[in-house]
Amino acid sequence: MNPRAALARIRLNPHSRAVQRDLRDANDMHRSLMRLVPDDLGTSPRQTAGLLYRLDETDTTSTLLVQAATLDPTRLPDDYGHTDLKDLTPMFNALQKGITVRYRVVVNPVKTERLPLDQKGRRGKRIPLTGPDADHWWTSRAADAGLDLHTLLPTPIAAVRPPAKSSPPMRHHLVRYDGTATVTDPDALTHAVLNGIGRAKSYGAGLISLAPATTA
């Protein structure tokens, strides 16, 4: 495997009208970030580009992390924010079985409603998971992604609600998880980093960040 990805860390300018618009409207945010990747990527451009993003907010700053195979931050408005761009190849090369890492991810934990037998062939609606059910969902997905969790700290994130004008209307329940884990399968973890975890990837879910765990 020769993984290829870049990560842009964009410290958003709160005075930018484009930023204000994108923070209000998840569809506009998605459209803005798709400008960072090449054009003419076919019928599934986000998936083809490998574009994932996450909004990290504190009391004083809002920072976008944007990941894709290639990124061109110059295609954003000049006043959008300050951008640092880095190649993720060194991180992929450092992933080894047995190492301990810190992680952060925003996910959309859901389950699909089970329908009665007389509705076989139909898809049940997706039901958001909260509390221990959401924690179990993330623990299971993390294991599939090559991580054995040591700790997990859930933080509810405001649900993504595109404006009422969107058709069909959407609402994505999001939870951020922070913690530490042991890498059990570097190849599975690389795949998860490149492709994201779970649903709602067009709305700020799925991107997992990794860093070496510090020891006391």
Rank of each mutant, 00 (worst) to 15 (best):
V110L: 04
T61G: 00
A69F: 00
P163R: 04
P132L: 06
I127H: 07
L64K: 06
P186Y: 03
I99T: 14
L115W: 02
V37Y: 09
L88Q: 13
D135F: 05
T48G: 01
I10D: 10
L207A: 08
G98M: 05
A158E: 15
P128Y: 07
L129P: 12
Y177G: 01
D144P: 07
G121D: 05
P162F: 09
T180E: 11
P45N: 03
R161V: 11
L149I: 15
A145S: 15
L88N: 04
M91C: 08
P90N: 08
M34R: 01
T139C: 13
V175A: 01
A205W: 00
D84W: 01
T112P: 09
T83F: 06
R171W: 00
L174C: 00
F92T: 04
M34K: 02
A213C: 09
A192W: 11
I208C: 04
A192D: 11
I10P: 00
W138H: 13
N13A: 03
V107C: 10
R176C: 03
A205E: 06
A18P: 00
A158P: 11
I10V: 08
L174Q: 12
Q47M: 06
A158V: 14
R141A: 14
R176P: 00
A145I: 06
A18R: 07
K120S: 13
D135N: 14
Y203Q: 07
S62V: 07
T58K: 02
P186K: 12
L129R: 10
L152W: 07
R46S: 01
G50L: 07
W137R: 15
H191Q: 14
R31S: 05
A68F: 05
T89I: 09
T182L: 15
